[in-house]
Design a protein around this nucleic acid. Sequence first.
RNA 1: GCACCCGUAGCUCAGUUGGAUAGAGUGCUUGACUACGAAUCAAGAGGUCAUAGGUUCGAAUCCUGUCGGGUGCACCA
Length: 667
Amino acid sequence: MTLLELQKTLKEKVRSKASEICGEPVSEVAVEVPPKTEFGDIAFPIAFELAKTLKAQTGEKQNPRAIAESIKSDILEFDFVEDIQIAGPGYLNVFYKRSLLLESALEDTPGTVKGIEKQKICVEHTSVNPNKAAHIGHLRNAVLGDTFVRLLRAAGNQVEVQNYIDNTGVQVADVVVGFIHLEKLELEKIKALDRKLTESGKRFDHFCWDLYARVGVEYQHNEDLLSKRAETLHLIEEGDNETALLADFVATRNVECILETMERLSIRYDLLPRESEILHLHFWQKAFELMKEKNAIHLAENGKHAGCWVMPFESHEGSDEHENDKILVRSNGTVTYTGKDIAYQMWKLGLLGLDFKYRHFTDYQNGKEVWITTADESAAEKTAVSYGGAARVYNVIDTRQSYPQQVVKKGVALIFPEKGEDASVHLSYEMVALSPAAAEELGFELTDEDRSKSFIEMSGRKGLGVKAEDMIDRLEENAFHEVRERNPDLDEPKQREIAAQIAIGALRYFLLKFTKNTVIVFDFKEATAFEGETGTYCQNATVRLNSIFRKLGTEALEAALGSVPSRSKEFSKLFGEDDGNELWSVVILALRLEETIHQSIAQSEPAIIAKYTFNLARTSNLFYQKHRILDEPDPDKKALLIAVAETARKALTSALSTMGVSIPERM
RNA sequence: GCACCCGUAGCUCAGUUGGAUAGAGUGCUUGACUACGAAUCAAGAGGUCAUAGGUUCGAAUCCUGUCGGGUGCACCA
């Protein structure tokens, strides 16, 4: 029996008894985790609730402690319950049978859910404009998204990961303008440049990063170049010309670079849907028809939106003109970004009635394939799976896009009321900004006004930001120095491998430990720390446990774990002794992993699993420091210590893997 | 102007549907390695939870006002 099942059973028992006491059905029973292990393993504040209900019924004041007392006897008979105490003003605190739960903890692999595949869920994340390298803000998106995917999968869901490629937007056009009009390069020359960059260990996306910033500067005093931008954008959208081919090469190369960067962080995708296909396969036209059919959209006849097709954002009566109407088709007949997004969202939910064509894009080292969309019939390949058509869609997009995301959600719900707004979830998060000190460290000159700010927004257009690759390289280098010092006996490739694992662990944890709506004000010192509340700390706690087991040997380990059921009586006794609570707190925390994963999903908040993992590592380190497992003379005690260490090791390994953090052999 | 988010220790942040003595990390002051590897552990100092009211058995948490900070409100993407 898992902790969640046990909790459910207890809740039901309390609920039925509570209904009996107050004479009317009680719907939901609240549960809490007591602040200290000594107070018990699960607490029901039900008596306070009942006292209120009874007072309302009879007008008489009731003592919550007395009510709690009357519920107590019913639960006490249950197998897994050791004791129940009435504490404080009337808490019903339940103590589990520790040795019994330890046994089930060793049987179950925590965090993995057996059973049937649930509905298909689609998660879109990363979606970096393919005109430059990714920066740490994009990493926050990707790490949040990837971790959320891992959480969903750990909970038994079927998940498809999409990385949307906006390959026909102005941002790509800007870099293309840079290549053609500033660098004076045509396609073949750009390809040669790309080869030269690669040979000298430089990156194409970093070249584009600088070029994009240069174009931005030029625009400010070069009217002529600005007109080239509109021209270029038009040619790219139209397709089938030299500029479009050049743009396609640039965008595709940037996508390849970004995918490389993300794979360093173990972030992978199933499908790359592109904006060009949404255009060329006429997704919008289809969505437009559907919207007109359902009267979700209308043509504004007068006012400032005259000649545009608009969607009413708030329900309103009377005139056809409204402040909050959202324009989906401009008066010149072209569709806005939000319009295309509605069509794309409908496809994701399987509501559009059209599909992309696909071709194989690339393979990951682990053999997994990435596919990309195409409009080209002759290039299309047969897919092994069908994409899109998800029951629920999560879009990982920063909070600044809350408004357009809400329009998309409402738009889809207007056309398909039966699907509703709940099928589209905007997983929104705050941005990563730079501290003024960090911006100066990157070599940017700040005005006095900038310096007085608490943070400075990153800007691709200005080239202001910490590039993802630079960040990872820096972390790896720092980690490598430490690893080399601590493990001089290892060869350099091994040291590098471990350093990479530590760097990624530190980076992913750093980006996950903040809750979504906290602005991360990036600071190099904090972000590169390997001590304190870091991914490194969590990895180290696990490595230490692993090293105990390595010294112990597989046979001795299995023998100890195998003997657990037969030592049940001795374990009960040991759990009751001085350090029993402290040993038990490791086990019960490890058992809460499954519950934590569910919580993290329900609240769409990956920080919950991160904080949990750190807590578990801390509890485990405390245990590690206090007990000498290998030197323990008492065989019963030794078996117990091994079993406790094993539950912690399993839960830590599983929790870290859910965060995409791997565990080095040594560190 | 309207909408949304935020204000908790010197600093960076957690704090579950309202619950038990408001917690971590970091920095500071101390102490612990001939090691199941100290990227660790222990101890100490550090708080009027921005502010004023309200709701109730109970509020950092819910409601209202005020002050301070952020973001969004394009026929950009």
